[in-house]
Amino acid sequence: MSRSTGTSTWLDLSITDTDVAKTFYSGLFGWEFEDLGEDFRHYHLIRNDGALVGGMMNIAGMTCPEGRPLPSEWGVYLAVDDVDARAATARAAGGMVVVEPDAISEYGRMAVVLDSTGALIGLWQAGTLEGFEFTGTPGSPVWFELMTHRFDEASAFYTEVFDAQLAPMTEEMSDPDFRYSTNGPGETASWGLCDATGVMPEDATGWRIYLGVESSDAALARVVELGGKVLDGPTPSPFGTIATIADPDGATFQISAMSEAAPEG
Rank of each mutant, 00 (worst) to 15 (best):
G94T: 03
E225S: 10
I255H: 10
D35W: 06
E225Q: 10
S14N: 15
A164M: 04
L193H: 02
D247W: 14
Y210R: 10
P248S: 06
Y25M: 04
T159K: 10
P201L: 04
N58E: 04
S8W: 14
A88R: 11
I245L: 09
N48R: 07
G54N: 02
S190R: 11
S181Y: 07
C64T: 11
S72T: 13
P65F: 04
D102E: 15
G250Y: 08
V230G: 09
T159S: 13
T188E: 12
E264W: 11
R3K: 13
G206W: 13
T235A: 08
T244W: 06
W191P: 05
A119H: 13
G228R: 07
M56Q: 01
G212V: 07
D39G: 02
E172N: 11
D49I: 00
T252S: 13
G67N: 12
G265F: 03
G30M: 04
Y43N: 11
G240A: 06
A85P: 07
T235W: 06
A257Q: 05
D115W: 15
Y43P: 00
I15Y: 12
S155D: 08
Q254A: 09
V224I: 13
E32Y: 03
N48F: 00
G122R: 11
L193K: 08
A85H: 04
R109Q: 08
S181A: 14
G250S: 00
G108F: 11
R109L: 01
G67D: 06
T23V: 13
T170M: 10
A126D: 03
S14L: 14
S116A: 15
F157E: 00
R91N: 12
N183F: 04
V113E: 09
P176C: 01
C194Q: 15
S237P: 04
G212W: 07
S216V: 13
I209G: 14
E73L: 13
S174A: 15
W124E: 02
F162S: 04
D82F: 08
D247N: 10
N183L: 02
E38P: 02
F253P: 08
V223M: 04
E214Q: 11
M147D: 15
W124S: 00
G94M: 12
N48K: 03
L52E: 10
G75R: 14
F134C: 09
D177V: 05
E130Q: 00
V224A: 11
W74R: 10
I59W: 12
P185C: 08
